[in-house]
């Protein structure tokens, strides 16, 4: 199974990967990265911070502008991808395997995922 077959995507271009133990990996879709262009700055939250679904938990900046990144489900940050904050340009090469942003422990109900789409449907929605 390829990475994109395993993820759910939000309308605001975040993805959610179920790790199976009530933890999830969060990142931005390739479409989002493509739209942003050269990534030059990434600000991630601290481990232990808690957010509700839809909260801004990170900021990403391309050459042209700053954008907020929203958490697709409620959760507590358990790990951040520190390598990326040092070299955010790596997101332009890979936003999935190496380019995930944070890992969270879900704190909300599974119904929070109802508005998330499979990657194929997400892609279709964009067209």
């Amino acid at each position: 199974m390829s990475f994109t077959e395993k993820i759910l995507c939000s309308k605001s271009h975040e993805y959610l990967l179920d790790n199976g133990d009530n933890t999830y990996t969060i990142g931005l879709t390739d479409y989002a990265i493509e739209q942003l262009g050269d990534i030059v700055f990434l600000e991630l939250p601290e481990v232990g911070q808690e957010f509700s679904k839809g909260d801004t938990f990170a900021t990403i900046e391309s050459v042209k502008a700053a954008s907020e990144i929203y958490l697709p489900i409620s959760g507590k940050i358990i790990e951040i991808n520190e390598e990326l904050t040092d070299a955010p340009e790596k997101l332009n090469e890979d936003c999935y395997e190496q380019g995930w942003l944070v890992k969270i422990e879900a704190t909300g109900d599974e119904s929070e995922q109802n508005d998330l789409m499979e990657y194929e449907d997400y892609k279709e929605e964009l067209e």
């Binding site: 262009g37 050269d38 391309s62 050459v63 042209k64 332009n92």
Partner: peptide, 8 residues
Amino acid sequence: PVQYTSII
């Protein structure tokens, strides 16, 4: 056109 390949 804002960019063709990459601004940088």
